[in-house]
């Protein structure tokens, strides 16, 4: 459980970092956009991904299982 949590957090932190970099690169320097707001938004996005990374991973795994099952069942009913 502890390992899963840390793996999820690490994955979340990595995705969050990429998401933050995307926000910064797409907004910084654009006319009319507040730079401080952009940086604040980026940091929050990173923090949220990191904090919820394990939960997102758990939901993704649940989705993999149910999506897989539903495809198998659908294939079965079509056959």
């Amino acid at each position: 459980m502890g390992d899963f949590f840390w793996i999820g957090t690490a994955i979340g932190a990595a995705i969050g970092l990429l998401n933050m970099l995307f926000i910064l690169s797409s907004r910084l320097g654009q006319t009319g956009l507040n730079q401080a707001k952009t940086i604040w938004q980026g940091l929050w996005v990173w923090a949220l991904w990191t904090v919820f990374g394990a939960y997102v991973l758990a939901l993704w795994l649940l989705g993999v299982v149910f999506l897989g099952l539903s495809r198998i069942l659908r294939r079965g009913s079509e056959a």
């Binding site: 995705i15 990429l18 998401n19 995307f22 797409s26 997102v56 939901l59 993704w60 795994l61 649940l62 989705g63 993999v64 149910f66 999506l67």
Partner: peptide, 21 residues
């Protein structure tokens, strides 16, 4: 879409799929 949304709807697709179910 932004890269993150593209990722959610490719490798991450089970997530939105589960959400809508």
């Amino acid at each position: 879409p932004s890269p993150i949304v593209r990722a959610i709807h490719s490798i991450g697709y089970p997530l939105p799929w589960l959400f809508w179910r």
